[in-house]
Design a binder for these strands. Sequence first.
DNA 1: TATTAAATGCAAATGATTTGCATTTGAAAT
DNA 2: ATTTCAAATGCAAATCATTTGCATTTAATA
Lengths: 139, 139
Amino acid sequence: MGKTTDDILAKIGCKNTKSRKAVVEILQSAENPLSAEDIFFAVKKQGSSVNLSTVYRTLDLMESKSLVNKIVMGDGKARYELTVDGHRHHLVCTNCHKSVPIDFCPLEKMEKDIGMRNDFDITGHKLEIYGICPKCKKE
Amino acid sequence: MGKTTDDILAKIGCKNTKSRKAVVEILQSAENPLSAEDIFFAVKKQGSSVNLSTVYRTLDLMESKSLVNKIVMGDGKARYELTVDGHRHHLVCTNCHKSVPIDFCPLEKMEKDIGMRNDFDITGHKLEIYGICPKCKKE
DNA sequence: TATTAAATGCAAATGATTTGCATTTGAAAT
DNA sequence: ATTTCAAATGCAAATCATTTGCATTTAATA
């Protein structure tokens, strides 16, 4: 059984508002990381509405609590996804921008090692792999 | 013997201008990936000057020819470095923003595998590892 | 040296994200 | 249930990196 929207918001220690619920719901049903604007329109499509600023504020808050993962893409827009086990990586299609999650982290083992070798305290990493997805290959 | 500025520009197939030379020179002597603004000021410090737009145009051009590697960081500014062997990764200090290059690619072996498993044609990847550098640890 | 497409500088435009502030709202206390 | 008030929201304006249009300059070739 997955986490409910309320479970997720409860962790934040903040007001459980209509806007925030809407944002979380969209993120939960998303198959890909979404931009703030994606979320804004998805909420609208559901019949309700959130201000774009509120979407940003909610995402920032959630990121600061490690509830969402912010992915900064080359196109100048950030995408967000609910955090699963700390982090997750994606295979991103450079043609259609769809992305599929990779179910493991290729760095897990190396990270500690690389940190030690350079005397860094490692706090995290970002990884994205780019390519052409099956669908776009056909076209 | 390293490549000269002219060697690098020759590959582009474009005019060899004062501005472009200046940008390449700065990139060559840089120890870290630099932002467009960093480059702009570094050129100024040398006594010459380039317009910021020109810096961006030069970087875009070079990126399109795979002569520089554009790194999109979480702080909203892109950094650029001369390409070495296709790509290179960094350990980035989240406190002072200094970065040290990692002398190998942790993904080399896995990439092909991941691509096959997902039926993607892999074209590249971006990886950055974050942490606190030795110097900042002390403070 | 003359010619001309390519490159530059400048100022204005863009687009994602952030912010200030007046208003509204959720939740704790009554 | 009502009061209370910090927290959250909406809105419009501000920011900031990057891009673009256009008039002017320049490198490369004849």
